[in-house]
Nucleic acid binder design. Structure first.
Lengths: 158, 158
DNA sequence: TCCAAATCGTTTGACAGCAGATGATTTGCG
DNA sequence: CGCAAATCATCTGCTGTCAAACGATTTGGA
């Protein structure tokens, strides 16, 4: 069909749904980008970066950890973890204590200040999640979570 | 292997599943990263970037498009689209034809060379998807696709 | 008609994420 | 014991992504 010049705003072609249907990897990545953007915006408004929040959450849940352990469990690169811990330490939310049994690693420890900060940040998470995934029913969110867990658990081969 | 080690290697704590269960956004992002990494590796092995593949696919499906249209439908930033089209043009897979009706925009057009390249790349996609999502049953893949489509369709509110 | 605003492609600059190298320390093994 | 290899935190450099600004062109309204 000859595009008669004025192929502007009305009756959009919207190729994207077709793409998403045939490329599950692309659908996953695009959805992730949208959610990540929302998460960053929320974190910025909250004044605590996503990575910082996750670190505090894990330290509170499992106790003092090395940066290595934090890095592996939170899937944050260890070179990035350096600056995340730097910021948390500067804010007084964690301390880097020496591990006497292994002086190569720190025992990153949450402080009372960090626990208070975490509590505040945690309180805002349910509303954020509800907002980010408002397009889905509770049932669909559960199913999505289960499928992603299975995917993450088994991992993608090499 | 009864390593009575205090905290070390065997019987890992694995906090990650807990995190994924309580933070659907993080689960989505981490799964996306893993899949994206696999897609990049596949694309590199195939010799055609992911973005380039998507552009060829859309041009073949809907005919000549402006870079703007490609950018919006494929969810690729327009400044990135410039270099994607540069590479494709340099390889002879597309031509940038002038749109006489609107000389601001190009009519990016796929060439025969591009169609051949696309056919080869398309042929390798099913095996790649099967590999990347091998942890999921066909049913789970369908459900994941449907849920992601719904999420993408409605979008995350600002 | 004419001019302000919008649109398209492009360039530039800032910034996050990741690979690889490095120094300090610990571990494994002869 | 002694030394090679592994581990932890850190630093450096590269790459990909995105926001903002910019010329060229089109559009809409006074």
């Amino acid at each position: 069909m000859a595009t008669t010049g004025k192929t502007a705003d009305r009756a959009r072609p919207t190729y994207f749904p077709t793409l998403a249907a045939e490329r599950l990897d692309i659908a996953l990545c695009r959805a992730s980008s949208a959610v990540a953007r929302a998460a960053d915006a929320h974190a910025a408004a909250e004044g605590l970066g996503v990575g910082q929040h996750l670190v505090l959450r894990m330290l509170d849940a499992v106790g003092p950890c090395s940066q290595q352990a934090l890095s592996e469990e939170l899937r944050i690169d260890r070179s990035v973890m350096v600056s995340v811990c730097d910021d948390l330490e500067r804010a007084g939310h964690v301390r880097r204590e020496r591990n006497p049994a292994d002086r190569r690693s720190y025992a990153v420890t949450i402080t009372d200040s960090g626990r208070r900060r975490l509590a505040a940040a945690q309180a805002s998470i349910p509303a954020f999640l509800d907002d980010a995934f408002h397009a889905l029913t509770d049932d669909e969110r559960d199913r999505l979570g289960a499928i992603l867990a299975k995917l993450l658990e088994t991992g993608t081969p090499r």
